[in-house]
Design a protein around this nucleic acid. Structure first.
Lengths: 219, 219
DNA sequence: TAGATTGTTAATCGATTAACAATC
DNA sequence: TAGATTGTTAATCGATTAACAATC
């Protein structure tokens, strides 16, 4: 099976952190930023930031850095965050609620257009200003206006079945927080978040530090 | 500044997913597993899994695979998950509550020994069976029995200040879910989770697929 | 001018992938 | 035996890092 392999994911993953810092600086009224500054903030080597920024295609000003507004625009374009992305969120438990509350993402990048749960105690109520629909009515609600992606916050045991229904509905993109690897057709995109993966890196760092002394850093 | 750079993080990040699947298989009464099988489940090339497993130092059985119980033990040792890791969780909002509810991690790997919040409406109450302490009393509660790490689920604006207090208390390891890069001394370990990073990869995949056709896969 | 920074090319390093022998 | 798998070494690829010219 030949698969399309994605490149530059380390760069892509760093972009939202640059963006967040840049927006904060813009709010403070700052106009320019240098790679040195961003690297200092993120505890990275300046050359890493320089290469990342170069990928967006921006041209900077020698001795000064980059225009903040221009850089924000370039990063948004690089990530495909120019037009609003719409999503349905399935599973309004504590994790789902946490995602509904991320104002970092929800400014101009991601709009959650509907929220579903199968718990009768939740259906019809509001969470963070979102009305919760009955998961049984997912197809009926989504079909007329299909969102770009589905955010899966359902229990792991229900994830595959939920995904199957959404795929049948026409959804071709998933952000999967359930602890299972989904079986999907070739043309369906899945981004799985593995929280335990972060914890594994953390404990590996601890093990490393016990022998080494200093605190290790990724890369 | 010379820093200790961590290697094999891609391997380390995949380990918890192997582990989770292996435990499930063990519960079903299975005894052996092959790299081919795990690769099929995780949608990876078999050679990737073979190399990952080799890093744990286990020896397999040609034509059969690996003993599941032995592999579980080797992965736990590789990650430093042999003895229980203890943690304080700061911030019992929806994200904190979600983490308190991850039974995947909380079996034998991670024990949350205390939970703090500064919201008077929450202090003294229970969330998922954990009693919530007043964040103002963090030092008093933690000092007598310092946990291995702190899980930061506080609002971003409060993260640095909270971290500073915990460092003064003796904490040397953080799992940081707040959207800021913490300033910490050289000997303090930080693992930052950037949820927006996952979303960036997802939207980058979408952009890629729009031109390419097939759904791209990392690596 | 001097110095901080961008821009660009080359070197290095590490992770993935390929190839194939060994073997139960 | 044949075939599926592990074990191991080498090749490739991509990301990080180094070096240095250009310049405001």
């Amino acid at each position: 099976m030949k698969r399309l392999k994605l490149q530059n994911t380390p760069t892509v993953r760093r972009m939202p952190t640059y963006l967040h810092k840049l927006l904060e600086m813009q709010n403070r009224g700052e106009k320019f930023v240098s790679t040195t500054y961003l690297a200092g903030y993120m505890n990275l080597e300046p050359i890493v930031v320089k290469k990342d920024i170069a990928r967006t295609g921006i041209t900077g000003i020698r001795r000064i850095g980059y225009r903040i507004d221009e850089l924000i625009e370039h990063i948004n374009r690089y990530l495909g965050w120019e037009e609003l992305i719409t999503a349905a969120l399935i599973g309004a438990g504590s994790l789902g609620t946490a995602i509904l509350g991320f104002n970092d993402l929800r400014e101009d990048d991601l709009a959650i257009t509907s929220v579903f749960d199968s718990d009768p105690a939740k259906i019809g109520r509001e969470v963070r200003g979102y009305r919760i629909f009955d998961a049984a009515e997912m197809e009926a609600v989504l079909r007329p206006q299909l969102p770009d992606l589905a955010i899966l916050c359902v229990p792991s045991a229900a994830a595959q079945e939920t995904a199957d229904r959404l795929i049948a509905c026409g959804i071709r993109c998933f952000w999967n927080f359930a602890n299972v690897c989904l079986r999907v057709p070739d043309d369906v995109i899945v981004q799985r978040e593995v929280i335990a993966g972060g914890f594994a890196v953390l404990s590996y760092k601890m093990k490393y530090a016990r022998s080494g002394g200093l605190a290790p850093v990724e890369h």
